[in-house]
Computed example of a mutant assay.
Amino acid sequence: MLMIIRPYEEYDEKSWLRCRVLAMLDTAYYDNVLKEKERYGNPAIELVATEGEEIVGLIDIELDTRPGEVCSDSERRGGLIRHLAVHPDKRRQGIGRLLLLEALGRARTSGMQYLEAWTRDDQWVRNWYANVGFRMVDSYLQVYLESGDQLKGMIESKVPQLHPVSVFAHYTGSDKAYVVSKFSRVHETSRFDLDLMEL
Rank of each mutant, 00 (worst) to 15 (best):
Y114R: 15
L115N: 06
E116T: 10
E116P: 10
A117W: 02
W118L: 09
W118P: 07
W118Y: 13
T119D: 00
R120Q: 00
D122C: 10
W124D: 13
W124Y: 07
W124N: 10
V125R: 04
V125M: 04
W128V: 03
W128G: 04
A130P: 03
A130L: 14
N131S: 14
N131I: 02
V132Q: 06
G133D: 02
F134I: 01
R135T: 01
M136R: 13
V137E: 00
V137I: 01
D138F: 10
D138T: 02
S139M: 02
Q142F: 12
V143W: 04
V143E: 07
L145H: 15
E146I: 15
E146G: 15
E146A: 15
S147C: 01
S147F: 01
G148V: 06
G148M: 07
G148R: 09
Q150I: 07
L151Y: 08
L151M: 09
G153S: 14
I155W: 08
E156C: 11
E156D: 09
S157E: 00
S157R: 10
K158G: 05
P160R: 14
P160K: 14
P160G: 06
Q161E: 11
Q161P: 03
H163C: 08
P164W: 09
V165M: 09
V165S: 12
V165W: 11
S166W: 11
S166I: 04
S166R: 15
V167W: 05
F168I: 13
A169K: 00
A169M: 06
A169Q: 00
H170R: 09
Y171N: 04
T172W: 02
G173W: 03
G173N: 04
S174I: 00
S174Y: 05
D175Y: 00
A177T: 09
A177L: 05
Y178G: 07
Y178Q: 12
V179W: 06
V179T: 05
V179E: 09
V179I: 14
K182F: 11
K182Q: 14
K182M: 15
K182G: 11
F183A: 12
F183R: 13
S184T: 15
S184R: 15
R185K: 15
H187C: 05
